[in-house]
């Protein structure tokens, strides 16, 4: 049996080899697990957030600016049909923590973007023409609706916006007109006419946009 002394050595070698192989498999397993990531879920979350703030989306005023009044149109049907999120994939969209749409409870990939939210309020100005025929619109807007209802003793023949002629009629203006203004500068409207302008004769309505910053968060569960 003396010669069989190498058998224990062989056994030790096998044990060492086996443990090396097992260690290798464990390391490979760890590497593979570490490399796994929800690639498609991440792509979907990114592209959904991109599409939600795109210029041609139905609820945006322009790129990256959401129109607050139109945000109600965003529902599950829009998420599924317009943005092509397949059944079985759940999504949630929140704006500053407030949920806009949620197809189911979602825990997956999150994408956050800083967006602007635009609100429009209608402002009404009734100039009294006390000392001046200039009317300053305190906030900028792209257009304004001017209603002229000339009273006894005075007619309005021209209306200028920052010295640019926007309305004119030699016989006197009467009725409701929409004038386009520059949204890049504050506008002063000047009313030119004959006679005395009464306080009731002009009414100006305009909708200045007001934008606030918000965080749009998109969660997708693949």
């Amino acid at each position: 049996m003396r010669a069989q002394a190498e058998l224990p050595a062989l056994a030790v070698a096998f044990v060492l080899l086996t443990s090396t192989v097992v260690a290798g498999v464990v390391v490979a397993n760890g590497a593979l697990t570490a490399a796994e990531r929800p690639a498609d879920e991440q792509r979907l979350a990114t592209s959904l957030s991109d599409r939600l703030v795109a210029d041609d989306a139905p609820h945006t005023a322009r790129e990256n600016v959401l129109d607050e009044d139109a945000l109600d149109t965003l529902d599950e049907a829009a998420i599924r049909e317009l943005y092509n999120v397949p059944e079985g994939t759940e999504a949630r969209v929140t704006l500053d923590g407030e949920t806009l749409v949620e197809t189911a409870s979602v825990t997956g990939t999150t994408v956050e973007r800083v967006v602007l939210v635009e609100r429009r309020s209608t402002e009404l100005v009734r100039p009294d023409f006390d000392r001046s025929r200039n009317v300053l619109l305190p906030r900028r807007a792209a257009n304004a609706t001017v209603t002229i209802d000339a009273q006894e003793g005075g007619t309005i023949e021209q209306v200028y916006a920052n010295d640019r002629l926007v309305l004119a009629n030699d016989g006197g203006l009467e009725g409701t007109f929409t004038v386009s203004l520059s949204s890049f500068e504050t506008t002063t409207l000047r009313f030119e006419g004959t006679g005395v302008l009464e306080a009731e004769s002009v009414q100006i309505e305009y909708e200045p946009p007001e934008t606030t910053r918000a965080i749009l968060r998109v969660n997708v569960d693949g």
Partner: peptide
């Protein structure tokens, strides 16, 4: 088993990469 796990991961990434490129292609 590892080959198919790695293959599955790779195919998901390939599709995600290709889909992402396709979605980014249309110009505004």
């Amino acid at each position: 088993a590892y080959e198919s796990r790695a293959g599955g991961e790779l195919s998901e990434r390939v599709v995600a990469t290709a889909a992402g490129e396709i979605e980014r292609a249309p110009p505004e």
